[in-house]
Design a protein around this nucleic acid. Structure first.
Lengths: 129, 129
DNA sequence: ATATTGGTTTAGAGTTACTCTCAGTCAAGA
DNA sequence: TCTTGACTGAGAGTAACTCTAAACCAATAT
């Protein structure tokens, strides 16, 4: 059993966010001890992991919530969960490509600056992007 | 010369966001016509492009603002601009890697679901992630 | 035995970066 | 002249945290 803080460290996520997620109902099997303190089991860590994967790939909270609810409803919902995950994979692939495109714009800008610095061609054209 | 709407279409960004950025001072050379309507030149489009690259790679507005101000100050600021761009490239590389990691978690989840669907091994274990 | 430290809890305020709505202005076409 | 459509600024709304405050509890230090 892990406290919020332990889970936070283990999974590289803030305690604030963990509590926030738990309040949203994202970890439905987390229990409380006699002092009302959250107790995460190793099973609960799997929920943390999947929520984290969905969130860092940009799934909105409402959709994460939907996914969690589907999980709780058992195997009848596997088709829908499967298609949600597939859609998210596809979206993430596109996001990565977009990021790579913007990255190459930044890289060419960096190269441009480096040329200027190396060849001392700073000639007071002013101002300039 | 382009209107906000034309720039929005050309650069795949919303008119709202464009106006918002212009109000933030991100396009310092955009002029207005006699009716106070924004007029983007082809040069201004370069500013839109770099702001877009910085933003989609997650640079906060305040830092974008800083970068823009450095641009306006001319060539003395090239070193600082260079290092900002380099830092942003590095950060983006890390983000892409993190995205790929989370993506692989999603993919293994998808594979797991696909197995269940294909082999009809839905056996009412309930509930399950 | 008391005091301090360090953790937890909830509720709610604050932040970032949009995103949208609204009321008003203007120019061109029916 | 009237309507349509695009523009304007001001400001409200939203998402997803992120942080603060006040209260509570337990373990250690004095």
């Amino acid at each position: 059993m892990y406290t919020v803080k332990e889970v936070a460290e283990k999974m590289s996520i803030s305690t604030h966010t963990l509590r926030f997620y738990e309040n949203q109902g994202f970890f439905p099997y987390v229990i409380r001890d006699k002092n009302n303190v959250r107790q995460f089991s190793t099973d609960d860590l799997n929920w943390v992991q999947i929520v984290q994967a969905l969130r860092t790939t940009g799934m909105p909270l409402v959709e994460v919530k939907r996914y969690i609810e589907l999980c709780q409803k058992g195997d009848i919902t596997i088709h829908e969960r499967f298609s949600m995950i597939l859609a998210q994979c596809q979206k993430t692939q596109e996001d990565i490509e977009k990021l790579n495109q913007q990255m190459s714009i930044l890289k060419s800008k960096a190269t441009y600056y480096q040329e200027l610095v190396l060849h001392n061609q700073v000639d007071n054209r002013n101002p300039e992007i």
